[in-house]
Design a protein around this nucleic acid. Structure first.
Lengths: 170, 170
DNA sequence: ACTTTTATGTCAGCCTTGTTGACATTGCTA
DNA sequence: TAGCAATGTCAACAAGGCTGACATAAAAGT
């Protein structure tokens, strides 16, 4: 009972006394933080006539070069029609290249062109800068806690996918 | 140098060695977690023919009953036309009540009706349950870190607004 | 060999939710 | 009384979700 705010014991099966009020604050924090999280890329994208959907596509193609359309669909969790609209404009603008698969010729493998990499760098640099500043202000223990909570908040399937991405790089 | 991943010293002016790789993981965690964060409310809203914008309006009216339209505009960060569309449907459906201000009769003070409170409860319960589960799995230190990082990630103006909300309840 | 399934692309149309610009009303304030 | 503030509303547009339907090519199964 002398555990400080939130009470508790060990990680994993902790007994936390969380009031609705505390949870509501966390919910609002998530809302406001996500606004900040997307603010910088949004500004850059707007100048180019792109939106958040383009950013997501560029990001995941950059981090997994050669990924297939189906892979991307699963990660982004949108319909192929929605993704295709975005992908088409990126290909037309010369930011993404789509190569027919060698093993399976039905698949399209997606790559960023030099121009695509340049945009990714611009977006990623801005977003990482914000994240880095937040991390520096919060300190290392906070960063660890942040990642832990975020992972616990994901849908199980997304968490699996996220952790798969983290470990294997594909 | 035996500080574990991320290195570092004390909070506030910590020296963190953050690789782009680590930051990219955090960025993806934020993306996937936000999906989970909104997933449950989205399902409930869809059944009622509402969207996320309705949820946000209902949430902030619930937490600050009697708030004005201008207040809500500032918190949500959208145009009045966009908010008005959502607000109008909520009022028409009898979830929100708009009362003319007594001191300043130009202002409209917004309240949830019983039906509005019922919807808020349904949405809030689902979202808090997810947050609570995530917090329990992560443990108290993680929760503190989570909140700290989120706050640091907000735009300064939004952080001011958020902290104002937290402390005064208005 | 034939059939089915898979991967992808595309067209059309709809919805929510954001935007800008213009304009009207009411009421506070200088 | 003039001007500014708070709100509502109309119109038009864009991004990015969605569904449904259909087409093609290639792999896989029988």
């Amino acid at each position: 009972m002398a555990d400080g705010p939130g009470g508790g014991g060990q990680r994993g099966e902790t007994l936390l006394f969380l009031t609705d009020e505390q949870l509501r604050k966390a919910i609002e924090a998530m809302f406001f933080a996500y606004k900040g999280f997307t603010a910088d890329p949004d500004r850059i994208l707007e100048a180019r006539g792109y939106g958040r959907a383009h950013h997501r596509a560029v990001h995941f193609i950059h981090r997994s070069p050669g990924t297939t359309v189906n892979n991307l669909l699963a990660i982004l969790g949108v319909t192929k029609q929605s993704l295709n609209r975005v992908l088409r404009s990126l290909i037309e603008d010369g930011l993404v290249e789509s190569r027919i698969g060698t093993r399976d010729k039905r698949e399209r493998h997606l790559f960023l062109t030099d121009a695509g990499e340049a945009l990714e760098r611009e977006l990623g640099t801005a977003q990482r800068a914000r994240m880095r500043d937040a991390f520096r202000h919060a300190g290392p223990e906070a960063v660890a806690g942040f990642r832990t909570v975020l992972e616990a908040m994901m849908d199980p399937e997304m968490r699996r996918r996220y952790q798969g991405l983290v470990e294997s790089g594909q």
